[in-house]
Amino acid sequence: MINVKEAKKLIEENCCTLRVETLTLLEANGSILAEPIYAVIDTPPFHQSAMDGYAFSFENWDKKSDLTVIGEIQTGNYSNKIVQSNEVVRIYTGAPIPPGTDTVVMQEKISKDGNTIQILDPFLVKGTNVRPQGSQTQKGEMALQERQLLTPVAISFLAGIGISKVNVFSKPTVSIIVTGKELAAANDEISEGKIFESNSIGLIAALHQLGINPVSVEVVDDVEEEIEKAISNQLSSDILILTGGVSVGDYDLVPDSLEKCGVQKIFHKIKQKPGKPFYFGRHNQTLVFALPGNPAAVMSCFYEYVAQVISSFTQKEYFKKMAFPLADDFNKNAGLTFFLKGKMGEKAVTVLNNQESYKLNSFAVADCLIEFDEEKEIFKKGDLVNVRMIL
């Protein structure tokens, strides 16, 4: 049995080479850029009015004469007619200012009499209310750097400079196999000896948090042939997650089934609570995680191990870790790392009740996992502990 640090190191050493794919902007939402993006045009692509008003040459105006309105430019239109001294053009926000103009006076700061206007803005200067061409980004300029997270705003920004597709780090394909003779679907009528199956639902929801839809989800009986068949069918995925059947009981058939399917065991069992019977292996490029069947152990192991492997594919950080003061004293025996459900407060983190691995009621309201080091036994109020946020 190995410790948590050793387990994470072995998993990291077996993570695969990064893959890059080309996606449309909407498909790439939430992904990480695999290469920098350079602007293909100036943005704005022309000198642009920032207001509804009147465009004119401030430089050639004598600062007192009325100006003659000679035309109008609606947003989306363009005029190449040169505007002379003491002439103005009615213009709207976003429209290109015409040749011969350098300033826009707001429509609220003029008085109009027929086809002439008088400017009433004493603070007007050359260039007021004009967005210069390329003032946001210039052609050839780096718009976004490599490893930038593509947020909705970043996607809007790229669309606005004429980018339609981007190269991003690929998400892994993930398959789920849940084992157990005792499992019943939520819409089944439950009978003696059965429990409702929840592990697949929790894992699917957690993967959705990361923007991943599993390619396959299967629930199988504790029958070796069925387990082997399910495993063999899913060894083309990047990540295979199994739950249940990994301990030492007569019907804990998963480790042997994995071996028969050609999976190379990297380790089996970690000095941790919950999730001690954790199994990790590899089949060619497929990473295999076999987790204990208890629901709290499944979700704890997903957050601490599986999600971090997914991060190595996508290059995106999930479930951030931080040091935070403990709200109350806590004692445990040495020899195991504890991952306990917690709740963050303004100044400290609290260990919740009902920490047993079969219970989810405290996990359902938790917002973090609190890590208690393997060899340390006594933790005092105010001690800094590692906390992994799970929301």
Rank of each mutant, 00 (worst) to 15 (best):
201 I>Q: 11
133 Q>E: 14
88 V>I: 07
46 F>I: 01
147 R>V: 02
61 W>L: 10
271 K>A: 13
369 L>F: 14
381 K>F: 00
332 K>Q: 13
314 T>P: 09
380 K>L: 11
63 K>D: 03
142 M>F: 01
45 P>G: 08
32 I>C: 06
338 F>N: 12
91 I>G: 01
285 Q>D: 15
186 A>D: 15
15 C>H: 00
94 G>K: 08
239 I>R: 00
379 F>K: 10
382 G>I: 03
20 V>A: 06
56 F>G: 09
375 E>P: 00
317 E>M: 13
56 F>C: 12
203 L>P: 00
109 K>I: 01
317 E>N: 13
346 E>A: 12
203 L>F: 03
150 L>S: 03
66 D>H: 12
70 I>H: 05
74 Q>K: 14
178 V>I: 15
344 M>L: 15
179 T>Y: 09
151 T>C: 09
33 L>T: 05
151 T>D: 09
8 K>H: 06
13 E>Y: 10
237 S>M: 00
254 V>N: 14
332 K>I: 04
126 K>M: 12
323 A>Y: 09
114 G>I: 07
230 A>S: 15
276 K>I: 11
84 Q>R: 06
182 E>I: 05
334 A>W: 08
337 T>N: 13
276 K>C: 12
385 V>D: 02
38 Y>S: 12
221 D>K: 13
262 G>V: 08
257 S>L: 11
386 N>V: 08
224 E>D: 10
100 G>A: 11
175 S>W: 07
285 Q>I: 00
313 F>K: 00
76 G>S: 04
75 T>V: 08
113 D>G: 06
361 N>Q: 07
260 K>A: 10
223 V>F: 15
200 S>F: 03
276 K>N: 15
122 P>C: 08
102 D>L: 07
223 V>M: 15
224 E>V: 10
386 N>G: 03
234 Q>R: 14
174 V>Y: 08
41 I>R: 11
215 V>L: 02
15 C>M: 02
143 A>P: 06
88 V>C: 15
1 M>V: 11
247 S>G: 03
193 G>E: 09
384 L>N: 15
391 L>G: 03
55 A>H: 00
355 Q>S: 01
89 V>K: 04
